[in-house]
Design a binder for these strands. Sequence first.
DNA 1: TATTGTTATACTCTATAACTATA
DNA 2: TATAGTTATAGAGTATAACAATA
Lengths: 168, 168
Amino acid sequence: MSVRTTARETGDSSRKRAGNGAAVGDVADDIGLDALVGHAGYAVRRFQIWIFQDFIRTLGAVDIRPTQYSVLTVIGANPGLSQMAVAKRLGIERARLVHLLDSLEQRKLVKRVKSKADRRSHALHLTAQGETALAKFKRLAAEHERHVEEKIGKENREQLIRILAGFT
Amino acid sequence: MSVRTTARETGDSSRKRAGNGAAVGDVADDIGLDALVGHAGYAVRRFQIWIFQDFIRTLGAVDIRPTQYSVLTVIGANPGLSQMAVAKRLGIERARLVHLLDSLEQRKLVKRVKSKADRRSHALHLTAQGETALAKFKRLAAEHERHVEEKIGKENREQLIRILAGFT
DNA sequence: TATTGTTATACTCTATAACTATA
DNA sequence: TATAGTTATAGAGTATAACAATA
């Protein structure tokens, strides 16, 4: 593969490849990826970047990023969890979760309640405001998910989720 | 992760753990992901983290990370490319590519040749040493890819690459 | 005027280590 | 001793802006 081209890119990559119909856009189309096309990780990474960008854009109006959304969702579905439990479940460093929760708590979406059973730990809950907000975030996230479906197709999206179910 | 101990994890919290005995594993198994299970992005992100970790581990002996590998591979397959062309093709910021190339050039894997056609730009090439090294990196990357196959299965890996081919 | 490579800055994320208060 | 939450720091990675040389 790797349609090896003139390797003249260096000279002027701004050239506009007119009218051949194929890919009006990028000069980059000429550049072969060689071994990268056989690596799942490369495609997965590029896709992950696209999907996060769309998520961030779609939830931009409410200023919620993917990690914040995942934290709110898990707390909403499992009220009373400790910070350690959330961190472990989502694969977030506990040190980082501290800052994430600081921000969410300042925004009155989450509250830390001192646990009676173990006074070292906090039981995490959504505030009433947080519950309402999360419902809205979920509607926006569903909209984002429709963008994904439009991008790769309904069947492919479902297959993807099935294939990767073990990593959640 | 490893074997859950006493399951005293969340300091009490909302421990529902059905006494079904199924959970030899993590306490985290009890924690539902709710809406996250329906989001392709969540699974994709978790998988991407796993796959990068395996790549970094597998190529740890040669100290090559995924982005470095992608840069070397593209230069190897398209000698003479400018920095802009590589950056655009791989979706890397040109400012960041400068540092990546500084490092690869110091390691004598890549060389920047002043372009005659456009004296603003550099034509990128692998050194002889870089060619040899890349061949080795590719063998290790293929080993990594076999790990992916073992993890998700041959068919699934191929499907994944097919589904995401548009993002490369 | 626009582009290439460069430098610089800031903000996010990841990875650790160490501290405190509990257990 | 060990753990939960916290603080601090360092390294990648990402996003911008600005500058010099060149187009």
